[in-house]
Design a protein around this nucleic acid. Sequence first.
DNA 1: GTCCAGGACCTAG
DNA 2: CTAGGTCATGGA
Length: 294
Amino acid sequence: MSLETSRKIFIVGDYDLAATLNSGQAFRWVEEGDGWSAVVDNRWVFVKQIGKGIEARVAEPVSDWRWLEEYLQVGVDIKAVTDSFPDDEPMREAVRACRGLRLLLQDPWECLASFILSSNKQITQIRQMVALICERFGEPVVSGESRGQGCPRSAFAFPSAARLAETSEEALRECRLGYRAPYLLKSARMVAEGEVELDRMREMGCGEAREELLKLPGVGRKIADCALLFAGGHQEAFPIDVWILKALKELYFARKRKVTPKRLQEFSMTYFGPHGGYAQQYLFHYMRKQAGRA
DNA sequence: GTCCAGGACCTAG
DNA sequence: CTAGGTCATGGA
């Protein structure tokens, strides 16, 4: 019998929680005072940075914290990862600006569904859409007994594919999804029916898993690569969005007049090494930080 | 009022 | 394979 606790400390260096939780890879984290809260693996959790690492609290005591350890990827040797990046000026700058930034390992469906909503939307708006579908269709995860003690009045899990599959396009449009509503609904149905097995994504090779994801409506190369990278553990996946496109053009192809998308895709897959997706996240956050200062 | 957002999809060249 | 238009909504 293992002891149940509602508090846990992860000893870890080089971990910047704020950068990690606010770098556009997950959309449920809300800043609360000196930390952040969200629902992970159907549990409400609050995390904050402390001297030696990360302190976590949950609403309902647990005996096993591996779910959070895996999600936060505290066991990853981040120095080994950043050392694998190409030794050029842009990457050195990005690493300097984003020290402690980590990739999370998220739930496949929540991650994929969130990124289906992400197309042509700002991160703040993606957060709003995700929050709405959780409030309206997600299971409540905070029981009556645990309310009050630093926990929220209510918190909701991200709705399963099966749950969303039984909603309607109209109900989803009322969550402000716009033209993304039918994409999410159809993808939810296909996942719920097992047409695409998201849970096998981590066992499959990156390319094979990508082909599966591309079968889903509303999922193109970029969104597929986000799911592969943020939930599939495939760190060679390299999502190219408008920010990364700008970064690649300005930092690596400034001399070229015209660069085709295909050329950029090839470059991104070969140049940045075995943890290319990680490098991509550093470039992404680096570009956004710079823009925020201007 | 204008521009654009962690794009996908459809059509025409 | 590339270029351009469209999609729904709302920050900036």
